[in-house]
């Protein structure tokens, strides 16, 4: 359960103030599938960053699963991020030196899952995302679709409550993008809250709730 109240995020550009988020109120229930659309620069990424506790709003409150997380310390926010949030990025953000399975296993290391348990959980993820024969490959040896599958496997290996995807198909061709969308939607079907930022009207339409942004404000919110 996510509740944002009067969130503002201001960036200084020279001597101008840019309101990336200008008073956003937003509630999202667990298990919802929400798309966020809007022109470039309308504040979509900033909103996801605030939702994922990567960025702090300049004002407003953020309540996550019943507790106020606005003023948590950096370390506490990192813990919440690790346990409850999964990020999927347009540009995958895999660690180039690590193999697919090592990339997938990173969150397990961060959360201190014992060594013995890690491999079986990574193997499960490799099977689930059809990456078994790519386990030992480095990102440079993977196709775009495979890379995004590795990224999604990494984002979900700790079973977060919310998956935040920022243009996850933006770097993929149509067919591969559709496959990745199916994957994300299957995760939503399994109970994960899915929040999808996209430019693509067709993809956005597949969500169950559609939010439109402009100039840092939510201008439409339809089921």
């Amino acid at each position: 359960m996510i509740r944002l109240t009067a969130i503002k995020r201001v960036f200084k550009m020279g001597d101008q103030d840019v309101f990336a988020l200008n008073g956003v109120d937003l509630s999202i229930n667990s298990g919802e599938y929400v798309s966020i659309m809007g022109p470039s620069g309308s504040g979509k990424t900033t909103l996801l960053n605030v939702l994922g506790l990567l960025d702090r709003p300049d004002s407003g409150r953020y309540e996550l699963d019943g507790s106020d997380v606005t003023d948590l310390s950096e370390t506490e926010q990192a813990r919440v991020r690790r346990d409850k949030i999964g990020f999927v990025f347009q540009s995958f953000h895999l660690v180039p030196r690590l193999t697919a399975e090592e990339n997938i296993g990173l969150p397990l290391i961060l959360s201190g899952v014992p060594h013995s348990e890690r491999q079986s959980r990574v193997n499960e993820a490799l099977r689930g995302f059809d990456l078994v024969d790519r386990a030992q490959h480095r990102p440079a040896e993977l196709s775009g679709g495979q890379r995004q599958r590795v990224a999604i496997a990494r984002a979900t290996i700790l079973r977060p409550t919310a998956l935040l995807a920022d243009e996850p198909t933006g770097n993929l061709d149509h067919k591969i993008g559709a496959e990745v969308m199916n994957l994300l939607e299957s995760l939503h079907h399994a109970g994960t809250t899915l929040i999808l930022v996209t430019h693509d009207r067709e993809l956005g339409a597949r969500a169950h709730r559609h939010i439109a942004m402009r100039d840092g404000e939510i201008v439409a919110d339809e089921k």
Binding site: L54, T75, A78, R82, D83, F87, H93, V95
Partner: peptide, 16 residues
């Protein structure tokens, strides 16, 4: 830099 950002995004505290 972007790798450091990624580590933080998946929940690594600054100390890590």
């Amino acid at each position: 830099t972007s790798e450091i950002g990624l580590l933080k995004a998946i929940g690594a505290p600054s100390s890590d």
